[in-house]
């Protein structure tokens, strides 16, 4: 009995001392700032920054001078400011964005070609004759984006996905999973949005949806800032140009759109959009560099 206790104790002491010595000899020097930067990030590992996770971005932003500190869209300007201080880089202006659904299929009374009973995911439905809806560019409402959203900012209502702008961090995860590419990121202070993502010709759209884009080009012609173009057969607003031009055009595109799919900012979205303030961080040269 005594021998068992003593021998076990002895083994424990030997193992402990071996580990203690090893931890000294084999200590790896980690950048102490890494932990601070990781703590400053939201930790959702959403991948919105383009890196494999928060830690990957943290080590990249610390070690690579070319990586900007405002890549974290989930954290927004607050995190960008913290990262800029920690890494000694200029924060740049992170224009807050929000995910936006380019589909109004309930309003447009889009018919169903068939009832879909397969695997309940948009990606699955897309594989069956391009989906159950008559319009091939509609929101199926099966919620691939809802399941993918790391911030619980989306939900399905009336077969359509809805986005809570106050929870959306514009990480872009939903944009990547949507098989119909009807989700996109737009600046929170966008003035005008296109509520349709169809790439079909006018006749085909008219047949399936009452509020689909018929590619008439009226908005393109009317826009004084030339901010609207046709990209991949669908209307694309360059929000940077649109915002830079300002409100002096009185949203002529919204007025002229015969299908009324160009609309001004949704009231919900305005309420949730934080007041945008241009970046007021110091210039690059004034910030002491921690790496020196």
């Amino acid at each position: 009995m005594i021998f068992a206790v003593v021998s076990l104790f002895a083994l424990g002491v030997v193992m402990a001392s071996v580990l203690a010595v090893a931890s000294r000899l084999l200590a790896v020097e980690e950048d102490p700032r890494l932990e601070v930067v990781v703590d400053a990030l939201p930790g959702a590992n959403c991948g919105g920054c383009g890196f494999a996770g928060c830690e990957a971005y943290a080590s990249a932003v610390l070690n690579d001078p070319a990586i900007e500190p405002n890549k974290c869209c989930a954290g927004g300007p607050d995190v960008a400011k913290v990262l800029a201080e920690l890494t000694g880089k200029a924060a740049g202006s992170a224009d807050p964005q929000v995910a936006f659904r380019r589909c109004l299929k309930t309003e447009g009374n889009v018919a169903k070609n068939f009832d879909y009973f397969g695997i309940m995911s948009c990606a699955g439905a897309k594989l069956v004759l391009g989906g159950p809806d008559a319009c091939k560019y509609s929101c199926f409402g099966l919620g691939d984006c809802v399941r993918a959203c790391p911030f619980d900012a989306m939900w399905i209502e009336d077969d359509l996905v809805h986005i809570a702008p106050d929870k959306c961090t514009s990480c872009g995860t939903c944009v990547r999973v949507c098989p119909n590419s009807i989700l996109e990121l737009i600046p929170r202070r966008s003035r005008v949005m296109v509520f349709c993502s169809s790439q079909d010709k006018g006749k085909a759209v008219r047949d399936v949806c009452e509020v689909g884009c018929i590619s008439c080009g009226m908005c393109i012609k009317q826009c004084p800032a030339k901010a609207i173009t046709l990209v991949d057969e669908r209307i694309h607003i360059d929000h940077k140009i649109c915002l830079a031009y300002g409100p002096s055009c009185n949203e002529v595109c919204v007025e002229k759109c015969p299908r009324k799919i160009l609309r001004c900012l949704h009231p919900d979205m305005i309420a949730a959009a934080p007041d945008f303030q241009p970046a007021t961080f110091p210039e690059e040269s004034h910030v002491p560099n921690l790496q020196d």
Binding site: L8, L11, M15, A16, V18, L19, A22, S23, L26
Partner: peptide, 20 residues
């Protein structure tokens, strides 16, 4: 009980070794 002790210590050691 001996084996648990040895394996636990060994894995800790291997982890440190690999990290370095």
């Amino acid at each position: 009980i001996f084996f648990i002790l040895i394996i636990a210590a060994l894995v800790q050691f291997v982890e440190m070794f690999l990290k370095k």
